[in-house]
Design a protein around this nucleic acid. Structure first.
Lengths: 203, 203
DNA sequence: TACTATAAGTGACATAATGTCATATGTCAA
DNA sequence: TTGACATATGACATTATGTCACTTATAGTA
């Protein structure tokens, strides 16, 4: 989490800093990113950066969490719109994230995020920060999903189902973005795998 | 790939260097690893390192590929031993990798690999280097697997099935290692998810 | 208004990392 | 012995990171 001083910043300065960080993290991965470039773009001195953020990661995960928050809201909305159809809701999120990764303009942030996806990044994406939050959100989803359609009989089984779905969704995203699939190709692959998932892998 | 000079090294020097690298990559992740530490341990000058490897990654992926090669052989053996039962063979590999991640002695290499798993690392793990190799290996597996038991009707569907299985297997490994699960807990989780995968997610 | 405590801003600096290159050394065949 | 080639070496240029002593701003108080 950024330090309080960051949140105390006036909007202009804050936005300029956030944009500078986003540009740098769009250029390269978290590990290759250079704080010096962010400073240059944001026109702030080195000391100030450390006044606002603990380090490079802190700034990166701030941006990522902002994005993840949006995706979570989308997911909940989709779940409602599709009457609890988990797979349709997930497919919409998949599409959205994939489209973000295709923005060729100023921001390749999501593309870089996906191509360097690891446990910590996935975690930031799917859960949000606190243990409490995770359980709370999981429960929200559990309430909204149409369980009748699913092959699970309790919350624990549903947890496993979600783990599988998340694994396959991210794996697809990363694979398709890394291999520069078109949106149609990516969606085809994802839908094929979802369909196999639904019907089961064995006879 | 390491440079030819590396392979020309006499065994003593080569082993010392490889061990030095393994120790460093066991201490921290690829990105945090310091070449200086490898040099100190291997007692070679800086210039020599770059005579043998292109960079830090080069050394890291050399070690990883060695390991992945072993796992691939295991997998093929298991597939034969279990008469083409894909799930049993995969569960054995899962167990083995998990056990490697638990080695508390000199080497936490696999633990660090799993905890920093990303696309590139997964790729090194599952495929080996060349496109040709990937297709070749995939075909080998396709020949060995008992297709009768599976819910797929052609090689393309089998490809999707393997993608799912790989996604879920790695996701489990990373999750269980990151959260310090015991071997029993990890195996329980994996088996639960495999069972859900087999029977299908929807009714 | 002047004073003071607290927060925020600043950039030079210590430290450590990476990759390169000119130079030195070793090896082997003619 | 010589020359061509491969290998070895460590000083160096460059670029990072995170800290700290010091300055400046702000807001509450006498």
């Amino acid at each position: 989490m950024p330090k309080q001083t960051f949140f105390n910043l006036n909007d202009d300065k804050k936005n300029k800093l956030v944009e500078a960080a986003r540009e740098e993290f769009s250029r390269v991965s978290l590990y290759e990113a250079s704080i010096a470039n962010i400073l240059k773009r944001a026109e702030i001195p080195r000391g100030s950066f450390y006044q606002y953020f603990r380090d490079k990661e802190d700034a990166f995960f701030y941006l990522l969490n902002e994005h993840a928050e949006e995706r979570h809201k989308n997911f909940i909305e989709n779940l409602k719109a599709f009457n609890g159809d988990l797979f349709q809701a997930m497919t919409e999120v998949y599409k959205t994230v994939f489209q973000f990764s295709r923005e060729n303009g100023n921001s390749n942030f999501i593309r870089n995020v996906l191509m360097n996806m690891n446990y910590k990044i996935e975690h930031a994406f799917t859960k949000n920060l606190t243990k409490q939050n995770i359980e709370h959100r999981f429960h929200d989803i559990y309430q909204l999903v149409d369980m009748e359609a699913l092959h699970v009989s309790n919350e624990k089984e549903f947890y496993h189902l979600m783990q599988i779905l998340i694994a396959v969704t991210f794996h697809n995203l990363v694979h398709c973005v890394s291999n520069e699939f078109s949106e149609t190709e990516a969606l085809d692959k994802y839908i094929s795998e979802l369909s196999l998932l639904k019907k089961g892998l064995v006879k």
